[in-house]
């Protein structure tokens, strides 16, 4: 199962015209994003903008109305099977009373490459220990997950993703409800990953830290409002369109240093169904 192909294109993720609706309301409308390898991308937007929906639908966890998604030139299913994608879901999606240890959760990160039936080997155990070391949880490897704090739980999820040794990392609100120290460790790990050529996409909720943590940003409000270097996306022009006037953050004035002006896509109006 772990037939990691050569990276066919330099595009880690290519999304074309992704459209997702929930019952009878469109949540994502015709999203076009091309994410090159080595990106450290923040997906931001107000509540209900479709950020988590975006992440879940590119992974194939939600059905789409239209759009094609490819990871490294492969379809989502193929990429998942070949272990190229690591997904860190929201922490609340899991029952933390489950009777397993930290190490066993991180070992789940190796299951993708093991496939059905196979048992973990020594090689996998070494990778797991290494992942735990990276997030500073080596000492707690045997502890049941129920006794962990919020920050430790998030680090377990990180370690699981790191153990996958994937090319593309997708994280859903990893910094929600954790302490500052853990947040620093995790941001550092993400930045190291991006620096070594991996691609990192993060659904982020805090406007104050987007500029310092990330290099590029995708601003969503059901449509793609802006996508590009973070200094140019997180500016009042685009934030006003996305959040209305309801955000408490004063972005610095637009800087024209770095970033190609053509890289930013024109903002679209959120449409209703009645145009035809």
């Amino acid at each position: 199962m772990n037939s990691k192909k050569q990276i066919a294109s330099s595009l880690a993720l290519s999304v074309k015209k992704l459209t997702v609706a929930y019952h009878d309301t469109p949540v994502l409308w015709s999203i076009d994003v091309d994410v090159p390898a080595g990106s450290l991308l923040a997906i931001i937007g107000p509540n209900g903008a479709g950020k988590t929906t975006f992440m879940k639908s590119i992974l194939g966890l939600l059905p789409t109305l239209a759009g094609s998604v490819s990871f490294l030139g492969l379809s989502a299913a193929h990429a998942a099977k070949s272990g190229a994608i690591a997904y860190v879901p929201q922490r609340m999606s899991v029952d933390w009373d489950f009777p397993i240890s930290v190490e066993e959760v991180v070992m789940m990160g190796r299951y993708g490459s093991l496939g059905w039936f196979a048992r973990p080997k020594q090689h996998d155990k070494e990778i797991v220990i290494d992942a735990l070391r990276q997030v500073n949880l080596e000492a707690l490897a045997q502890k049941p997950i129920g006794s962990l704090s919020g920050g430790q739980q998030q680090r377990v999820f990180f370690a699981r993703a790191l153990a996958q040794q994937a090319e593309v990392y997708l994280l859903d609100e990893p910094f929600a409800n954790i302490d500052a120290a853990t947040e620093q460790i995790l941001v550092y790990i993400l930045q190291q990953l991006a620096a070594s050529g991996k691609t990192v996409l993060v659904v982020h909720h805090d406007l104050h830290t987007v500029r310092t943590y990330f290099k590029t940003a995708l601003l969503l409000k059901n449509r793609k409002i802006a996508y590009g270097p973070v200094e140019q996306v997180v500016t009042s022009v685009y934030l006003d369109q996305a959040y209305g006037n309801r955000y408490y953050y004063t972005p610095p004035a637009i800087s024209h240093s770095g970033g190609d002006p053509d890289y930013i896509s024109p903002a679209g109006k959120v449409s209703s169904w009645g145009e035809l």
Partner: peptide, 9 residues
């Protein structure tokens, strides 16, 4: 334990 993660791998 975590169905959506397993789906994603």
């Amino acid at each position: 334990f975590d169905a959506s993660y397993m789906q994603s791998v």
